[in-house]
Structures are given as structure tokens and as C-alpha cells.
Design a protein around this nucleic acid. Structure first.
Lengths: 210, 210
DNA sequence: TATTTTCCGTTGCAAAAGCAACACATTATG
DNA sequence: CATAATGTGTTGCTTTTGCAACGGAAAATA
């Protein structure tokens, strides 16, 4: 978009150089962190996949965000208002850096380059997050399950620059991500196939329209 | 939350001091800006109210965001993927500052303090935007119209620190904001009254539960 | 490899939400 | 002030979605 800071190389270069952070490894299904008010926590996912999940009072599970390599997350991006639990769950083995957000703007003892570079590039990183969230909002504001599915597929297709792509979710999780009932989503998926909008081979979707 | 930069005083102090920006005034219902790819535009709403509105192919109108005093907006926060039109519409008289995002990180000719302060505080400002968007996502992921309404009311109530508050929208616009059908929303609103969850006097809602 | 757990695919039925239409109130505007 | 435009409130009907339940496939685990 703009000054395209290369977070991947940056992290490779500096991920071992700074004192003021913790690096931890998680196995599949482990809880990476819980969003707790005023924790002031910012995390970077160095490797793996994880979901930010909310459980509401009716027992509904929602995948609020899906994180892959280099994603930023943490309670610092969230105003905790409700009593809903917000957890980050590892979907595969994950390596995660933990920071206290305010620390990023203070020099650390070693005056380390990691901190300096991170704080310089933070606006860009957070901006990327904003654009992700806006895409998510665009999906969620679609009125029907069909439009949500097609919108999501078209997004994945654009990202991969191909009409054919793998779903990063199980179908159960996809329903929780689109915030719809799983069986209703399965029904709609069947109709999309019957109506010639998509083909589905295992975990792979092929978009047939436009 | 963190270093709580006071954007209001900052803007008061500096809004007239910088060359590299445009300041414009808009009347009600005028189009403030259109989101166009690579425009690299960041705007600050100095005064008034405005909505970011999307019209989709089915003719549905969605209020994507609602902006009030001191809000940040602009295409720089958005990856334009679809063909949907994204417009910012003034809901009252508005005063708006326009920037090119990349310029904010370059010193302007006068080496002005506005720029300097803005770029220092930009992470915080964008972070505030992230938390807003996350709240919006929390609303949109609620499964029923009832939960969306109650969630939104509870949000307004928390902000005003009072069980009684004014809606910043007409009911028609509220439906477009919650992404539900207006008549269905009206029906649910009636049920909420009948079930003793809320009272409604003109534009004012009183939350009666909890 | 046997067994448990998770996921997929499906269905009947109930509930919720959308659509279309209308009357009336309120607010802008010539 | 008269008239137009917009917003509110309501309803009957249709469509979509959610819920609950189940059998079988696939994957994880002992």
C-alpha cells in the first residue's frame, strides 16, 4: 500500500536481539493468551496459525480473527467491555513474541535496534491491521449466508491470485468465522455448488463465476 | 488506555499551522470523499458527523462507520477490492482536514510542529481506530437482531456512563448500521419494549436491565 | 491398529428475518 | 404556508436461517 515495511525480514533479523519481550512456543489447541483489560499486551505471531475466539452467554462460539504468520494481536487492540471471554487458541504449533505495548515506545536497556525499528514501523503495521478489520466488517455486513460465503471466497481468490484456493478453516470454523449456523452454511454451500457458483474438492474451492 | 494523547487539544492548537493539508467545509448530505484505490488519503473530522456508506449490487445500503468529532478516516484504512462504492456522507455541517498519508511521515517545508506531533501520535490514533473497529465486529457477529440492538445500546450506555442516552442515528440509519432489515428491526424494538428491556422516548433510549 | 474424537453432510421443523406495502408523523424546502 | 421528502410504525406473507439430531467419514490418539 504505502511504505511497505517488510515485517518478515525484520522479524528474522531482530527476533533474538531484544530483552524486553518474551518468546514462547505453543502446541495445537493451547491457549496463547487471554484478553484481559489493561494488560497492555501486543503479540506478534512469528509462526503458525491461531484464532481469536469469543464465547458468548448463549454458548455461541465466534472466530473473531484468524491469525497467520506475522500477524499482530493482543488485548491492546481491544476495549474489553463485555463479559465475554476472548481467547487466542493455537491452531497449529505457534511461536509468539509478547510485548507490553507502552514499552515499545521506550528505549530498552540495550537501546536495541529491534525496538527502534518496531516503533518506527508500528503505524504501518497497525494500519495493515485496520485494513484487515475493514475487510472483515465488509464480510459481516453482507446480508445473506450466500453473500458471506461468496464474499469470503472472492477475498481468498484475490489474495491467491487464483480462482482455486484452499480454505484456511475447517467448515465448522468457517461458520464460526462468518457468524452463521453451521448446518445452514452447509445447505447454502450445497446450493452454491448446484447453482454452478463453485466447485469443492476436499478443502479446495474453485470459483466458477466472473 | 495507554499514553492517552489528547487529539482534541492537539487539533485546536495546530489545525491552522500546517501547509501540507487541505481544510474543507461541507454541508449536510454532501459527499466528503470517495474511497478510491491508492489515493493514500487520511482525513480528520474536526467537527460534525459523517457516515462511511457502502451501496452494494443488491441496492442494500450499509453504514460501515459512523464518524463524529476527531474521527480519523480515509481510503488509507481500506483495501478497495470490490466494486462497491464507498462514500463518506456528511450528516451535519462538517469541517474536515485532508492529508496524504505518506506526507505525514515527511517533514513539511516549514518543519511544522503539527506534522511532527501527528506522526509521533499516529500509532495511538490508529490504535484507537482498531479498538473501534473491533467493537463494531463484536456487534456484527451477534447472531440475532435483538442481540445487536442490545449490544449497541449497551455500548452507548457505557460510553455515556448512563442508562439513558440519545441515538446518534435515525432508526432507518441504525438498521443500515446493524446490517438488518428496518422493519424487522422495528418489530424487535417493539418486542424489547414489551419485554421490559428498554424504554424509548423520542430519540432517547433507556436501558432497563442489569 | 483399535478406538475415540472431531468433522462433514443431511434433514424436518421452528423461529427469525426479509420484503413489500401502506398510513401517518415529522422535517425540509420552495 | 403549502408541498415535498424523509422517517416512523405496522402488518401479512415469504424466504432464510437456526436448532436439534443423526449417521458416516476422516483424523487424532492410545
Amino acid at each position: 500500500m504505502n511504505t511497505n515495511f517488510d515485517i518478515e525480514n525484520f522479524i528474522l533479523d531482530f527476533s533474538n536481539s531484544c530483552q524486553k519481550r518474551q518468546k514462547k512456543v505453543f502446541g495445537k489447541n493451547e491457549v496463547v493468551t487471554t484478553y484481559i483489560k489493561n494488560r497492555n499486551q501486543l503479540c506478534i505471531l512469528l509462526d503458525g496459525n491461531a484464532d481469536l475466539v469469543r464465547y458468548d452467554l448463549n454458548g455461541n462460539r465466534t472466530i473473531v480473527e484468524h491469525f497467520s504468520k506475522n500477524a499482530l494481536f493482543g488485548e491492546v487492540f481491544y476495549t474489553i467491555t463485555t463479559n465475554n471471554e476472548l481467547l487466542v487458541e493455537a491452531k497449529s504449533n505457534c511461536t509468539v513474541l509478547f510485548y507490553i505495548y507502552d514499552d515499545i515506545f521506550h528505549k530498552c536497556r540495550n537501546n536495541c535496534k529491534f525496538h527502534q525499528t518496531l516503533s518506527e514501523n508500528l503505524p504501518q503495521l497497525i494500519l495493515n491491521k485496520v485494513t484487515d478489520l475493514n475487510m472483515r466488517i465488509e464480510l459481516l455486513t453482507k446480508r445473506s449466508t450466500r453473500d458471506k460465503l461468496l464474499g469470503y471466497f472472492s477475498l481468498l481468490s484475490t489474495r491467491k491470485l487464483s480462482a482455486s484456493f484452499e480454505l484456511p478453516f475447517s467448515l465448522t470454523d468457517l461458520a464460526d468465522y462468518l457468524s452463521v449456523d453451521r448446518s445452514a452454511m452447509m445447505r447454502e454451500l450445497k446450493l452454491l455448488k448446484e447453482d454452478g457458483f463453485i466447485e469443492k474438492v476436499g478443502n479446495r474451492i474453485i470459483l466458477l463465476y466472473k
